[in-house]
Structure formats: C-alpha cells, structure tokens
Write a protein that binds this DNA or RNA. Sequence first.
DNA 1: CCTACCGATCGGTAGG
DNA 2: CCTACCGATCGGTAGG
Lengths: 232, 232
Amino acid sequence: MPWAPARGHNETMASDRSAGPTAIPVEQRRIVADEVRLPPGAMPEGTQGRILCEALRLFAERGFYGTSIRDLAQACGIRSATLYAHFPTKEHVLAELVRVGHESHHARLLGAGGTDPVSRLRAVVRAHVLAHAEYPLLAVVANNELHALSPEMAAPALLIRADGRQLLLDTLDAGVDAGVFHVPDTFMATTAISGMGMRVANWYDRGLPYTPEEIADTYAEFALRVAGVGHA
Amino acid sequence: MPWAPARGHNETMASDRSAGPTAIPVEQRRIVADEVRLPPGAMPEGTQGRILCEALRLFAERGFYGTSIRDLAQACGIRSATLYAHFPTKEHVLAELVRVGHESHHARLLGAGGTDPVSRLRAVVRAHVLAHAEYPLLAVVANNELHALSPEMAAPALLIRADGRQLLLDTLDAGVDAGVFHVPDTFMATTAISGMGMRVANWYDRGLPYTPEEIADTYAEFALRVAGVGHA
DNA sequence: CCTACCGATCGGTAGG
DNA sequence: CCTACCGATCGGTAGG
C-alpha cells in the first residue's frame, strides 16, 4: 500500500551477504530499528525489567498475539510460569509498555517550551519526533499493538493521546489567530504533522546517517512549512 | 505515544449513549473506519470474495494473529474446514489482501500525471492519499499486518514499496534540480510526505466532514509546502 | 461444503 | 523461580 521509507540496510534479497552494493535492498516488514531501549526510570530492576525489555523486542517484531508467553519466557531465560510472579497476565506486560510509551511521549510534549507560535510549534514537533526516533520500538508497540488491549486497559492511553492531539491543535490555532500561520484546515494540519512524526518510528534506525536531533529539526521545519511559515 | 488524530465519534467513555456532546470522545485503538470495501475488480465472486471481505474487516480490527480461522469462517457463514476449499492457508488470505492493497495503491501512483514538478508532486500525493482515504481498512491491513507474512510472502509487497518510494524521491529530486523545490533533504521529505499520507488510513472515516478528495487536495498542498513551494 | 478429528500450542494455575 | 499440569483453542487434514 504504502511507502514507509527506509534504506533497507539490514535485509537483502540475496542470501549471500557478500553480494555487495548491487544486492537489492528490501525494506523491513514493520520496523528497521532493533535496539531495545526504555526511557530512563521506566525500567524496573531485575527480572521484571528484563521481561519488559524482551517483550518490547518481541512485540515490536512479531506483535502481541504473535508472541507466546513461552517465547517471552525463553528470551528472559526463565520458565513461562515464572512470568506470573512478575505480571498478572500477558496483557499487563503490554499495558505497561503502552503506559510507559504514552507517558514518556506526553511528558516530552508537556515539557516543550516556546512562546511565539513559531518557536512553540518547533518545540512541540521536536519533542514529538524525538520521542519516536529515540524509542522506535516503544513507539511501534504503543502505536500498533494498542488494539490488543481490552478497551478498559487501552483507555488511559487514549486519553493521553486526546490530550496531546489537543495540544498540537491549540498550537496551530494560536498561530493562525496571531496571523503567523496560514493553514487551510488546522484539523488536517494536525493529522499531517502528527502522522509524519509517528511514522519516524518505523523507518528510523541508528545505522542511518542522521541523528534523532537532525530528524527532529528537519521535521520541525517541515511542520512550520505545513503551517504556512515559508522557508528561510 | 502518539496522536493519531480522529474525532472519536464512534466510541465514548460514557456507557450512556445519550450523554450528549459533553461525553468525552475516545479515539479508536487502531482504525476509525469500518466500511469494508475492496477496489473494483479485486473481489472474486462468491464465497472467495466473502472470505476476503470478512478477513479484511477482522484483520483490520483484531489483526491477523488475533483472528482465528473459526472467527473468519463464522463471519462468512461457513465451517472453518471450508476455508481450505478456497485458500491453501490462513496466511494466503492475508497475502491476497496485502497484494491487492499494494498493487492497487501502486497502480494509482503509476497513473499519476503531471509534467512540471508542482503538478507532478500534487498528482502523486493525491494518488497516495486517495488510496488510503478510500480504502482505509485495506491500507491498515497491508501496512500493519505485513509482518505476519513470512519473508518470502512479504517480498513482493516490499519490492512494490521500494518502487513507490523511489517514484516519490525522483519527483522531489527533479523539482529540486529544476530549482522549483527547496528541500534541506529529499530523503526526509519523502519519509514525511509518505508518512503523513499513510496515517490517513487510521483516522479517516466517512463520518468526518471531509471527502477523500478534499483530504487528498489538502495533503497535496501540505506536500508542496514541505517541498518549499510557498502557499498561495 | 460438511462432520469429525489431528497433534501442537495457547494463556494460565497449583503447589511447592 | 521451578515442575507439573489444566482446559481451551489453534491451524489444518481426512474423507466424503
């Protein structure tokens, strides 16, 4: 359907790895990044933290339903029954990753500064994109596995999303009201700006010749252009 | 993690549906649209077509692994064993949806006209966005369930994606070379423009006060702005 | 398109 | 944190 870009540097059609630069690069099926990382303070000590990290890796790669509790336990070096000494159910493991993902993202949004519309939008978009580029596995799990949670367990994340969405919409509306932004429709500008940032989690990987900061800066520039602030 | 916007008009926190406009709208967990539709010519006659349609609905809502062959059969009004008279395996049902999604999207891209860079980019982005707004369930399945296919069965879709990606990149590069576009980095402009369009499938729904055409037009305008073509 | 059934695996529990 | 085990469900097949 799409083009979810990526330079496809971790998979090739050729089974011969020495095929060299002429090998056809094939994009990832879901996510390019493979570095398991959780925000500071979000990772519990000991086995509980190990379970979260392995779940992050497996859920990002195979999905929640595609990962059995035995897969997860084996990755942690324990028996499946031992998981239940740390989490009440498999769903609670996902719920914790979803919670951490949404809360850390939202905290960055709330921490975004900026007083005038331009610096404000730049700060908000930078925060949004940085969260996705620095924690791509977490973002993919939080975004794409949310449907595996029951409505009750998904509800907190959905409330956080609604708040973040409103924050971006308010930022755009304020700029329009101030006559600084020129946007045909601020709802669609919100979907466009948030959407482009979310997809960063699917293609970004540390093997690319960009730092997360560079991506955040460039995407903030794109967002300002969408908002009708001409380029320099 | 994100804000995948949507006006949340099909779910509310309140169990009382008569709560009225003060009810807090809660966004969908994965996709807002629920209208099952396949591109013209992509739906086989009879039971095989019915299986594809029900699979589209169930895979979009619950995912491939979250849908059992008994769920699918029941939705079609047949027994699970009968599925195997129409498809070799469950995976082949998904593969067919992924194929249809990618091929119909790609056909629209290839059909996009435009000679000068501005009209060319507009046509390509319109095609991209229209495919996602008119067939949101198909787009979500093709994009988000691709990881459930084996590498062999996912390969054709990945090749199509690579081609579409290159088409957009070439469009941007041509505009830059012609001095019409002004972009700090065409790779990132490609990821941004394709990403914003892909996310349309997650939030768009016919209940919103926009037609797919209006969304495509507005997103094409946003893409031109990202490309450094100032707004009118 | 069905009934009947296969072995494998699922999430989770008992009891220590 | 383990062994042992539960009933339920999984994708798929045999045979008609």
